[in-house]
């Protein structure tokens, strides 16, 4: 059992938790993830590490409610426990392991979409601590879904915020910001790191390819084991099949087959929807899901 030391609700669908897990906190690096199980019968949820405090032995995760398991997690509070917390899993970001001298020579642009802001944050913070100021684009559907703005501003170079509906920052997609920075402002970037919904990473890569900016993406496929044992998270990178859990989660975005990855994420869509309705509506669920037959 792992104690929830702190819970911060950022908006109605996104919350953060500091979990006491000394073994994970001691070794985790930006780019890695953990697997959380809420209760004794819970499923294994992979979540990217958002921050960590080695002295306190805590790891911070950011979660967006999606299915029944994440709603269950949201219903827990400070002082409660999650049943399992395994990690750190996956490879650390290349930025952390590459020669720091080489990294310093690069002008780096981060592109974060929605919850993807959370895993971008520790990377930008790590660079800041090593004297590197990276530019960051944060995109969200609407103002309420922009997260970690102050924290990010404190550790990055330029911060560009854009919302789909124009309720905050500029209006439009992250790809339009990339194009404007390169074409209108004449900015030059040697490396882009894009983390967010798979569809956003796909279009981000299409844009950066145009400007020849090598781009790293962090993939979040369906997972079970998280340790290389099952291959549920496999994806095609170049002409090779890779396991996101041990070969990734970060890959060369120019080589990732995004269409296949997006398809594979849809595998259990109806099952997950049903489980969510059951959890949230319980006995008041009268077949509104259209699947269970309860409305017939």
């Amino acid at each position: 059992m792992y104690l929830i030391r702190k819970k911060t609700v950022l908006n109605p669908t996104i919350f953060m938790m500091d979990i006491v897990a000394p073994r994970v906190a001691r070794y985790c690096q930006p780019g890695q993830f953990v697997i959380v199980r809420v209760d004794a019968d819970g499923e294994r949820i992979p979540l990217t590490i958002c921050d960590y405090d080695r002295d306190e032995g805590t790891v911070t995760i950011a979660v967006q409610t999606m299915g029944a398991s994440t709603y269950k997690l949201m219903d827990l509070n400070e002082g409660d426990h999650v049943h399992d917390f395994a990690g750190p899993l996956g490879r650390p970001s290349d930025l952390v392991t590459d020669d720091i001298g080489e990294v310093r020579k690069k002008k780096i642009l981060f592109v974060a979409g929605g919850l993807g802001t959370a895993p971008v944050y520790p990377q930008v913070k790590w660079l800041h601590e090593h004297g590197i100021e990276a530019d960051v684009i944060v995109g969200a559907k609407t103002k309420d879904l922009v997260i970690l703005e102050d924290e990010m501003r404190a550790v990055c170079g330029n911060l560009y915020i854009t919302t789909d509906d124009g309720s905050y920052g500029r209006k439009g997609l992250v790809t339009e910001v990339i194009s404007d920075l390169v074409e209108k402002e004449g900015k030059h970037y040697d490396l882009c790191v894009s983390i967010g919904p798979t569809i956003m990473m796909k279009f981000c890569v299409l844009t950066t390819k145009k400007y020849n900016i090598p781009t790293i993406v962090s993939m979040n496929p369906i997972m079970v084991g998280g340790t290389g044992m099952c291959g549920a998270c496999r994806l095609t990178v170049g002409d090779e099949v890779k396991f996101a859990c041990i070969d990734g989660p970060e890959f060369d975005g120019f080589l990732v087959n995004f269409d296949e990855a997006i398809e594979r994420m849809k595998l259990y869509r109806t099952e997950e929807g049903r489980a969510l309705l059951e959890y949230r509506e319980g006995t008041t669920h009268h077949g509104g899901c259209g699947n269970c037959g309860g409305d017939r």
Partner: peptide, 25 residues
């Protein structure tokens, strides 16, 4: 623990699983 695949076309289609994944689930 690492499952092997055949490396044939279509192996990443939805509905293809390693026995390890199917049995673990």
């Amino acid at each position: 623990g690492l499952p092997m695949f055949m490396k044939i076309p279509g192996e990443n289609a939805k509905g293809v699983f390693s026995a390890n994944e199917y049995l673990t689930r």
